[in-house]
């Protein structure tokens, strides 16, 4: 029989790749995704290591989703600050900032183009990144991690109804973006 640290190691090894991909899709950054997964692993072991093994999966994803949400908050604040500093800098140079310049060009990651060049992973990642964060999370947890509606609701701290709505909207958008444009 495995002791608890062996069971935990086996569990973490079984979820780390998918968790990393979830975080990478959310952040579009390998380094940030690695930091998020490491933080989620540490918190699970430290805070919930003594919990029964069958509870680890929803707990781990709950921590992961929280860490991703914190990353969104930090990034929003950082971007606002950076945008404000740029505005000040440009105002000093007597140049007005075009607010449209602050936003990413959606055409830069057009999933349609990427499907055409046959890069299905990149196309899927781009399509998933177009989704609002809650829809992205509901989709990945339900469709990929195979969590039930109830488990997903616990992980995302929302109602089962919200999970169903987020998931249905995500599927509709992804089908429109990816299926309709298959070569």
């Amino acid at each position: 029989m495995l002791d608890s640290s062996q069971s935990m190691e086996r569990f973490l090894a079984s979820v780390e790749r998918r968790a990393f991909r979830m975080a990478q899709i959310a952040t579009n950054s390998t380094d940030d995704a690695l930091d998020i997964v490491q933080e989620a692993m540490l918190n699970l072991v430290k805070r919930y290591g003594a919990k029964p093994e069958e509870e680890w999966k929803p707990l781990f994803y709950r921590i992961l989703v929280n860490s991703i949400r914190d990353w969104y908050r930090r990034t929003r604040v950082r971007n606002r600050w950076r945008s404000w500093m740029q505005t000040i800098g440009k105002a000093n140079d007597a140049e007005a900032l075009d607010p449209i310049e602050s936003f990413a060009d959606p055409a830069a990651h057009n999933p349609e183009d990427q499907v055409i060049i046959g890069d299905s992973v990149a196309a899927l990642d781009s399509a998933l990144r177009i989704l609002p964060p809650r829809q992205q999370q509901a989709f990945l947890l339900r469709a990929w991690e195979d969590l039930s509606v109830r488990e997903t609701a616990v992980v995302m701290r929302c109602s089962a109804g919200s999970v169903k709505t987020h998931y249905a909207r995500a599927v509709r958008t992804l089908r429109k973006l990816l299926e309709d444009h298959r070569p």
Binding site: S5, M8, E9, L12, A13, E16, R17, F20, T30, L34, V37, Q38, M41, L42, L44, V45, K46, R47, Y48, G49, A50, K51
Partner: peptide
């Protein structure tokens, strides 16, 4: 990336060994 994930997992497990959880 795989190597970094393995290191992250080992670090998490090491920390758990060195600092017992309050629940335990």
């Amino acid at each position: 990336t795989l190597s970094q994930l393995t290191q992250a997992r080992h670090r998490a497990l090491e920390k758990a060994k060195s600092k017992p959880s309050i629940h335990r």
